[in-house]
């Protein structure tokens, strides 16, 4: 089966600064794939390249159904089945919760279908339903994160790109977000999970890639990486002793 995301040897540069160098990543249908690494590792640059927000200087990116993303303008990416949960939530602060969800469903041309999708999301997240007519900017960080996820789901994606969804959240909310990632995956959603919380990301993902300074330094099944001494020391804050 064609992967939902196939990144082949991609470089991303900002002027003379190389943010991503020769990175290849695959997300198969129904997988949660984690991409971990510290600040400035290039994780978000990869997300931006997939979404068409940042041009990539070489390599190829194939999206859902094997579409070559190079020729897709940024506003058409969502229509190919890829939705973004951006870092730091980035909800439309001056719009209501419902309007945010309506923007998520913007590519659904049939109005009734879009409204049905929004109702499904409001049922899924009762806390959003209670605040449907509140401005998104006044929600708490956790509620904004749920809204950012709900907004992405409203687009009816096949692949979800989640850029640091746990960033800045209280530990209990972080757990809720990771449980939600697992729940969505059980429903069949493919997910590329960009995270600095390496331990939890590895625990809930099938496979993972480890980035450092724009280059892949490790990849493989998440369970293996959890026990990899190099990864453990650099990103999990512990040493793994071999038997």
């Amino acid at each position: 089966m064609t992967p939902d995301l196939d990144i082949k040897h991609v470089d991303v540069t900002y002027g003379h600064v190389v943010a991503v160098k020769d990175v290849s990543t695959v997300v198969n249908r129904g997988e949660v794939v984690a991409m971990i690494g510290g600040n400035g590792a290039g994780k978000s640059s990869i997300v931006r390249a997939v979404m068409g927000m940042t041009p990539y200087s070489s390599g190829e990116i194939y999206g859902v159904g094997g579409i070559n993303m190079k020729s897709i303008p940024p506003h058409r990416v969502c229509g190919t089945g890829i939705a973004l949960v951006p870092s730091e939530r980035q909800v439309f602060a001056s719009m209501t919760v419902r309007e945010n969800l309506e923007m998520g469903a913007y590519t659904i041309s049939e109005r009734a279908s879009a409204e049905r999708e929004i109702e499904v999301i409001l049922e899924r997240f009762p806390v959003l339903a209670q605040r449907a007519n509140h401005l998104a900017g006044i929600l708490s960080g956790g509620q904004q994160q749920l809204l950012a996820i709900g907004r992405a789901l409203a687009a009816q994606p096949k692949l979800l790109l989640m850029d640091e969804p746990s960033l800045g959240l209280a530990p209990v909310l972080v757990e809720e977000v990771f449980e939600l990632v697992q729940e969505l995956n059980r429903e069949g959603m493919s997910i590329l999970l960009i995270e600095q919380n390496a331990k939890r990301a590895l625990e809930i993902s099938h496979r993972a890639y480890v980035l450092r300074a724009g280059e892949l330094i490790a990849e493989g099944p998440s369970d293996d990486l959890l026990n990899d001494p190099v990864v453990a020391e650099a990103y999990l804050g512990r040493l793994v002793t071999s038997n």
Partner: peptide
């Protein structure tokens, strides 16, 4: 209107509006 919301979303966060299908 849908178009009006797209204008407001673009004014709020242009890149995110584009990510959800708005031709900014």
């Amino acid at each position: 209107t849908r178009f009006g919301r797209a204008i407001r979303a673009t004014a709020d966060r242009e890149h995110i509006a584009a990510a959800f299908g708005v031709n900014v």
